[in-house]
């Protein structure tokens, strides 16, 4: 049984039924403990889909089931949001309190958790994202990567089983991106938290267990990073990036070089070329 099951979901922001749908018949399963990335252009429906995972949006047709509960069930809304946390793109706009630790406490406070327990959760969450020393700082003085990690801690304090992140690194510099991604990998591996990461960066996408490519509100293709990025032609046709190593290998294969697995990392690519040139 998958943790989140998306079943033939359609959603449109427009009342007009002729207008193109933001999400158009998507079916997808997210398993517990998985690290899934969703890639695609702006406007491909990935952010809209993300908001369906924690009942921020409800499907026009089809359904989303989170841990056995239908998101359309109003009595379950807050249970679902406590199970699936959503982190947004702009870290500035997610921090609601003037002090880091008070911000992290916001979620459990809303859930009516006892004060001592909140304290414990806040400390734990801040340690998990490596921001414990900054607990008494004002958020606006932190770097982008630090702010985004605080935002993640704010979600962790709710103790969700799954975190969905909508382009959390889009506004960050390379070191901020690295901080956020390594935090996510750690949470996924050590704390067994399911991660759904929406991103534009292919170097982030290749780290996942599974990559889902969306276009025009539909799922274009999905599979392991190796499976997805070896379809260089399809990705190029939809003007999506592929890692440079994959592109090089793909073009060499086009000229007749025998390549079994398209290399996604620098080391794999070097090994492959070394072999071919020897």
């Amino acid at each position: 049984m998958s943790f989140i099951s998306i079943q033939d979901v359609c959603f449109s922001y427009d009342e007009d039924s002729a207008a193109p749908k933001a999400v158009d018949g998507v079916s997808l399963d997210i398993n517990a403990g998985e690290f899934v990335t969703i890639i695609g252009h702006n406007g491909c429906g990935k952010s809209t889909l993300a908001k369906h995972l924690n009942a921020m949006l409800l499907p026009d047709s089809g359904m989303v089931v989170v841990d056995g509960d239908d998101t359309a069930d109003e009595n379950k809304t807050f249970d679902i949001r406590a199970k699936v946390g959503l982190v947004l793109q702009n870290p500035d706009n997610q921090l609601v309190a003037g002090i880091v630790e008070e911000d992290v406490a916001f979620g459990p406070e809303n859930l009516g958790v006892a004060p001592d327990e909140i304290r414990r959760r806040v400390d734990k969450a801040l340690k998990a994202v490596d921001m414990y020393e900054y607990r008494e700082h004002a958020p606006y003085k932190l770097s982008g990567g630090q702010k985004q990690r605080v935002a993640i801690a704010g979600i962790l304090a709710i103790q969700p089983q799954c975190i969905v992140l909508d382009e959390p690194t889009a506004m960050l510099d390379p070191s901020g991106r690295e901080e956020v991604i390594s935090t996510l990998l750690k949470l996924n591996r050590e704390n067994a938290i399911t991660v759904v990461l929406i991103t534009h960066y292919m170097d982030e996408a290749v780290l996942a267990d599974r990559v889902v490519v969306m276009d025009g509100g539909k799922v274009l293709t999905q599979g392991t990073p190796e499976e997805v990025f070896s379809q260089v032609e399809l990705l190029k046709k939809h003007r999506l990036d592929v890692p440079q190593s994959a592109e090089l290998a793909y073009r060499l294969r086009g000229c007749g070089l025998k390549i079994q697995d398209i290399p996604l990392t620098q080391d794999d690519c070097v090994a492959l070329l070394e072999e071919a040139l020897r």
């Binding site: 807050f78 706009n93 709710i158």
Partner: peptide
Amino acid sequence: DVATAMECRC
């Protein structure tokens, strides 16, 4: 955005 983020945090 803030309103969305607050709702996401229950």
